[in-house]
Design a binder for these strands. Structure first.
Lengths: 362, 362
DNA sequence: TTGTAGGCGTTATCAG
DNA sequence: CTGATAACGCCTACAA
């Protein structure tokens, strides 16, 4: 069933030409129509298919780009991957996906594996790898773009001695939303609705930390105390447990919870309902991500939309651009390729209650 | 920033040995401890990293396997991808992911792109490609395994002239659940709970068709009429619309809906609630997949669990086995590698109502 | 244990 | 427009 794959040499012989000529028709070089036909039918006959690894070797580039992703199983990350793939495919490039599994050691070893393939470029999604290992690893990589590696407008100066600012990085392009600002928006939204006892369930990794900082800063600016902070692990179950602890003593219950992400919110919903509390009447919930199912929770979840697919697309465009594959691209694409910070959006649904409307209309 | 990558030759010179020796230390061949050290430090010094495309060329295998997936963005598919990756990584293999985008043309062109890379094996997830194009394309691929390409226990003989039976396929290994049986179980579960007016909202593609067939067959076997069938497109919105039409004339409303998958169910939930109907009191819902959020719907969704990750793992094991990489593998892994049909599970939550208990306890 | 040299399948340069 | 032929970086007999 598995005879040796025919090579360019076989085709050349079959067509009675040289390998160079075959290569030319394969690559749209100048060939006479006649020979072109002969060669093409020989190709057809033999079922020849070009060997891309040989091609990569001589061309010095593989046409595949590496993507390091925390977890394909995360809906948002999957969207990014999809965005990346969609634009890459238009240019006949492909990608190898590796999961960092949401932990640094795994990220590093995954990255090293990746680097051994001759990838032409690298996209790092939400990586927690620190600056120094990164720059060591990436020394010889032509182009790297980071998605969601903190392009904060207001660095979290106190919590991290030296902020993870990607702009300072080894030829690192960056795409992402303004995580800090978005989290502040979410918090302020609650404040504007008249909430004073606001809780936060943290998400993990650096974006989780940024959101926490934005949260506490926002409360501080509003002269509110931030006594209600619970650690989530980013999952539904973590959210459930965290919400439980938040709800445990009846006299000090928050009127609103800002969940680090939608999955956390799903867990929190469950906990809140178990306590026979109504959402949003008794407790309002706001979250982050806007995963596809967020609108189908009961009540539909108010949340910050992260445009995962767009982020992936932009990242891919940046790569194509730097790789010089974008000559013939539409202006629009080019423009998007240069942009660096994607806009987010607060999607109002019905999970937060307006405390003021009930009280006084002042 | 981007000087020429050091090659094995550079290392050889730096270490004062031949390239063969360097190659040997790279591949754990017999080398004296002394030279080994010298070479290794030279490697360290130069920051040498093996060029895997050259290696692939000479070895005749690339160490990457191709995965054709309908859509990374689908939670179940992502789980499969993750399962595949996890076991592959243990053996230092990687994968290229391509999305078929849930349509055949795209599937085919994606596949062709994939085949030009020298992938060592192929995993096809839920492909709708027909037998003939498949066998033409796959002529030279060493090993292919299909996930979820219908391993039905009871072929849907009437709807398809010739059933898509993978076992008949070109050296195609197969892993999947018994889709037909599972869908029958779901339907029968409803019947056992006393439901007589049962609706179905179809999912797409071949597994959707199989489920539909199982549904009608099950009803037939129970002497129930199957008047309530609506076409979904597999998405929440499709489910919403389909449920709407199901609910439109008040005198003929089903007491239960079997949704082709969880996403459809989410949409159906929304429609049902908009009609001021209670789940499960007025309408019961059962679905398929058990996506991570299914348990967080209100009420928690009763559904058939598909173990996506396991399916991916098994598929990967099959490949490793056929590729002969599994010599040193634990028995357990080996055993799993040979299995072909994965067990599913009906997860009872609270979205279906028992009609009998309310009426008569006979 | 170590070195030499041929070859993996393509592309690209340089003559014809 | 077409044909030799030298790389590309690595592995692997075969020799030493």
């Amino acid at each position: 069933m598995n005879k040796r794959m025919p090579t360019i040499i076989d085709v050349a012989e079959a067509a009675g030409v040289s390998t160079a000529t075959v290569s030319r028709v394969l690559n749209k070089g100048k060939v006479s129509d006649l020979t072109k036909d002969t060669v093409e039918s020989a190709i057809e006959e033999l079922g020849y298919r070009r060997n891309n690894v040989a091609r990569s070797l001589v061309m010095g580039k593989s046409g595949v780009i590496g993507v390091l992703i925390p977890d394909v199983t995360g809906a948002l990350y999957a969207q990014m991957a999809r965005g990346i793939e969609d634009v890459l495919n238009k240019y006949n490039l492909q990608y190898i996906l590796v999961s960092g599994d949401r932990n640094v050691e795994q990220e590093q070893s995954a990255l090293e594996l990746l680097l051994e393939r001759q990838i032409d470029a690298l996209i790092l999604i939400g990586s927690d790898l620190d600056e120094s290992t990164l720059s060591k690893l990436l020394k010889n990589v032509y182009v790297t773009v980071f998605i969601q590696r903190e392009a904060t407008s207001k660095a979290t100066s106190e919590s991290l001695g030296e902020s993870i600012n990607s702009s300072a990085h080894t030829n690192g392009l960056t795409v992402g939303i303004d995580n800090y600002q978005a989290a502040q928006d979410a918090t302020n939204y609650l404040i504007q609705k008249g909430h004073k006892k606001i809780a936060h369930i943290t998400a993990t990794r650096h974006d989780g930390r940024t959101r926490l900082n934005a949260f506490t800063d926002a409360l501080e600016q509003a002269n509110l105390s931030s006594n209600f902070i619970a650690e989530g692990d980013g999952t539904e179950d973590g959210g459930y447990k965290a919400a439980k602890t938040l709800l445990q003593n009846d006299d000090e219950i928050p009127t609103a919870i800002f969940c680090g992400n939608d999955r956390i919110a799903a867990g929190a919903y469950k906990a809140i309902k178990e306590h026979d509390l109504d959402i949003p009447r008794d407790i309002s919930v706001i979250a982050f991500d806007n995963l596809p199912w967020a609108e189908y929770l009961d009540p539909p979840l108010t949340t910050i939309r992260q445009p995962g697919k767009s982020m992936g697309e932009v990242a891919a465009f940046k790569i194509l651009d730097t790789l010089g594959e974008l000559d013939d691209a539409p202006d629009e694409a080019l423009k998007r390729a240069r942009e660096t910070t994607i806009s987010y959006e607060l999607i109002e649904r019905s999970s937060v209650h307006d405390l003021r409307s009930g009280k006084h209309d002042a």
